[in-house]
Amino acid sequence: MHELSLAQSLLEQLLELAGKHQAARVTRVVVTLGPFSGIVQDSFAFGFNILKAERPATRDAVLDMETPDPEYICLECNKVALIPFPRQSERLDLARHGLAARKCPWCGSNRLSPQGGTELILNQVEME
């Protein structure tokens, strides 16, 4: 729901960076959206693409979003479990077949405690 505010904040940072590096336009942006950040990639991209058009310096910026696989600690066996984050294209399949219960790949327990993953980071900017 607040993806638009976040996209606005990113664009302000881009304009500031372009100014600082005396670049006329930003061509590519790489961000990391943590798997537990609560930010929906589609909505974020939607907001970014609307707002970027307001300024010539950001109009052609291509947004690359990366979301690392969510990490859990199993409270049963204390091992770290990495469970692949469903890609956007897999979401509908999940909706059709049901979200498989998350289980520890080592011991099968479902007592998984999410670790970190709330990061929202501007990694890299390409400009010219």
Partner: peptide
Amino acid sequence: HHHHDPKVVEVNQSLLAAN
């Protein structure tokens, strides 16, 4: 349309830096 050298900047700061 003037090309400048493309520049890649590693930023690594929070998207919410201002907040």
